[in-house]
Structures are given as C-alpha cells and as structure tokens.
Design a protein around this nucleic acid. Structure first.
Lengths: 237, 237
DNA sequence: CAAGAAAAAATTTGATCATATTCTGGGCCG
DNA sequence: CGGCCCAGAATATGATCAAATTTTTTCTTG
C-alpha cells in the first residue's frame, strides 16, 4: 500500500506528463508530501503513538529529505504530529484534558462557522451537502470506516468552506488533525453504527436560514461525537 | 540592526561557548531561526506586507537553507506568514473580515483560558502577574512601544500558562502571531496611551477566585484592543 | 527619430538532492 | 550494573537545477 503511494508520488513529480490532474501536477514535492501525510493522519491511516521518522518517509515516498522535513515541521505546527523531545516525532495520543479542550474549541469555532455559512449558502450548495450526507449514511450502513471518516469530514469541511471565514476554518482544520487518528481507533473498535449524527437537523435549519438552529445542531453533533470518543479512549487506556 | 541579530545567532550556533543561556544553547538551528523570526513577528519588527525571502534570511542569519526553510513552513502553518502564490512569502495584511474572526476566536479561547487559570493560580503567581502589569504600565507611560508589546504579551501568556490547557494555549499563541505586526503599526501610529487595559480588573477577580469575572474582564480587554485595531487599520487603508 | 511594446537575456530566488557532521539509543564488555 | 562503542537517525550545508522576475535589447510604428 505504501508502495502504491510511492509510485504515484514519483510519477507526479518525476514524470510530469503522467500527472493528469492539473491541480496536483505542478505542486512542489514538499506540498505533495504534506498533503499525503495530512490525509493519512486525518483519515486514520496512522495509529496514535506511532513513530514517524524522516528517513522512513524519504524511503517510502521516494523524495529527498528536505521536502519531508518541511512537511513534518508543518504537521507538527498543525498539532497533527508531536515532537517528543529527542529528535523523535510521533502521532499524538490524546489525554482526557486534551479532548476536553478540543470539545470546547470545536464547539465555539464550528458553531460560529455554521452560523456564518447559513447566511451565505444557496439551495444548490445545500443540495450538495445533503448529497454528501447521503453518501455518508451509505458508508455507515456498509460499516465502511474509511468512507465514514472521509464523508464526515467532507460534510463539515464543505459547510465551513461556505462561511467566508479563512481564519476560523483554519483553526477548525487544525483541530480535526489532532483527533483524526484517535477517532479512527474509536470507530475501528466500535463500528460506525452508534455514532451520533445531527446532520439532518443541520440541513433542515440551513434550508430555513435559521442560523442559531444550525449552530446549536452543530454544537450537539460535535459534542456527542467527541464525548463518545473521550469515553471510549479513557475507558480502555 | 539585522546585522546585530545575525551576529548574535552566529555566536549562539557556531561558537557554542559564548551561548550562555542554557535554554537556547543546545537548540537546533531550525528552532533558533523559528524563535528569532517568531519574536520579530510577534513584537512587530516586521511590517505587514513585507516580503520574506529564504535566501535573504540565510544570508542575514548566517545559516543554511534547510533550517530557514523549515522555520518558514512552520510560521506559515502558524498563520504568522502567508504564502503568496508564486513561491513568495510575506507578512500578512489583515482584512476587516480577518480581524472580526480574530476577535471572535480570541474572546472564546482566551476567556476560557482565563477561567481555567483562575482556579489554579496561587497568590505568588498572581503577584508575579501583577508585577508584569506594573512593568507594562511603566512602558506605557514611557511611550515605549516595544516594551508595551512585550509586556502585554507576557501578561497574557503568563496567565494562560497557568491554565493547564496546552491545546487552547496553542490556539491563542497562533492568533497572537497573526495580529502582531498589525498591532505594532497601530501602536506606532497612535501611541500606547489610549490603549484600553482591563488588567486591573483581571487581577482583582483572580484574587477573589471569580472565574466568570476574570473571563468577562479578559473578553472586554481583548475586544476593546482589537476593535481599536480594526478601526485604525480600516480607516487608514 | 523617438516612444512604446514585445522578446530575450541575465539575475535573483526557490526547490531538491547528495553528502558530511552531530547526536541518540541500544548493545557489549569489563 | 555502569561505562564505552557503534549503528542508525537527524541536522546542516553547499551544489545543482528550475522557475520567476527584472533588465536589456530590439523591432515596430507614428
């Protein structure tokens, strides 16, 4: 699997003609590496506590040290990776205290993003969001953890993208990177069935342009999901 | 002036014996560069819009490209610098929308940090904070802009350090990095006299252990300062 | 002939890599 | 059990290549 990524990256970088997607074609290698790792973290392909080495990544991704180095620094700054003192980097393990802070910050920021998005979204955009939510439901029914994580992210990110609030969106993205690996563990252990989902309420309020309703539904969505995560993680560890 | 910084850094890195401070002595060069730039941004030694070049920094700081590169990526991730499309990096210029988002996020996060800190702080720690505030007042009376910026930061950071909330503190630090250069411009244009300051209220409530009072005073402190900044910046630009 | 615009060369800056050096942690021996 | 050595990993540099900007040159046109 890592080999597959390696080949893809190599093709995109070295053999320019084979990189079909114009969006990814011209991106410099350090950004490529950043986005690759970011996805792996966000969608739980990395386990909390797992060590991350520069050399390992240069080997598996087939790029030099400098781009890997830059990507790792960026991810550390994001909170997606942690620097463990002695030149050692790993995927973060969340404490109860960490999760409580994440809950507070997510509720504050993502409610406001929802509020802002409500006033700007067109019917078409709401339709697109609803379509994402249907895909999400299918993933849940199928027990597809990876699909669940991706579609759930797509739902939230899609909503926040309409808020015209780059600073707040940026903060929200960072918070997601922190709990990505842990959420994956919880889903893997518990399945996706009993995860709460206030998305239907959100869409209803969006259509009615009730900003406060959207904000409250989002706050509940966030809180319920995160509390479940906190319970599962602190009970077993 | 830049030459002074260059010499200092060179001494710290190359001539290890002259780096007296044990805290900074062993740090790798990329962290040195990061913290140097971070301070320059936080305390307004850089002007909004100013371009930042990698080669320029390698020359002026006397270190190789890789550490500079890493430091810049980190600062971009922090929001302290912005990537301007064509490989070009500069100090951010805040829009009205940006400032409004910063106000919201700062109030939410820094109120909570204050709330948490209230319950934990000892009398000695409150005394230390009060001492910082006295130094701050002296800087204001002297019209010392740099001193004002540093002491004001010290006051807030000192308070948040007692909150036992690394995730939230981290978010707060990031937000400060975003408006550092702009705040400096406002102070330079307007002086430090008419800047609002709720620090006395904060300290009083801290001593009485009134968490809500501290949070509200902090929210006012933040809001008043930021609104002033927004007014000045949007009026003149 | 002068002015302006387009084209081309030169310079500057960024991106990547290979290599040398330094540091850390684990294993081995006294 | 403690100190020493070594493999491996991280840090830092300079070289090299590529991209972009700036400057210079040239050509056209009024």
């Amino acid at each position: 699997m890592t080999l597959g990524i390696k080949v893809t990256l190599l093709n995109m970088i070295k053999n320019k003609t084979s990189g079909r997607n114009p969006d990814t074609e011209k991106r410099p290698a350090h950004e490529q590496v950043y986005h690759t790792l970011r996805e792996q973290i966000l969608f739980g392909e990395m386990v909390p506590g797992q060590p991350v080495t520069i050399q390992g990544l240069t080997d598996s991704l087939g790029v030099g040290m400098t781009p890997v180095r830059e990507a790792i620094r960026r991810l550390i700054s994001d909170g997606a990776l942690v620097f463990q003192g002695n030149r050692r980097v790993s995927v973060p393990i969340l404490s109860r205290n960490d999760i409580e802070q994440l809950i507070f910050a997510r509720i504050a920021i993502e409610s406001e993003l929802s509020r802002r998005a409500t006033l700007r979204m067109t019917e078409d955009e709401i339709d697109a969001l609803e379509a994402t939510d249907r895909t999400l439901d299918k993933a849940i029914d199928a027990g597809d953890v990876n699909g669940y994580l991706r579609q759930n992210y797509a739902f939230h990110a899609g909503l926040y993208a309409q808020a015209d609030a780059p600073v707040l969106s940026d903060l929200a993205e960072r918070l997601w990177l922190r709990f990505g690996p842990s959420l994956r563990v919880v889903c893997g252990r518990f399945g996706t069935q009993n995860l709460p989902d206030r998305h239907k309420d959100i869409i209803t309020c969006l259509r009615n342009k009730e900003a406060e309703g959207v904000a409250e539904a989002m706050a509940k969505d966030v809180e319920q999901g995160m509390e479940l995560m906190a319970d599962v993680l602190t009970r077993t560890s």
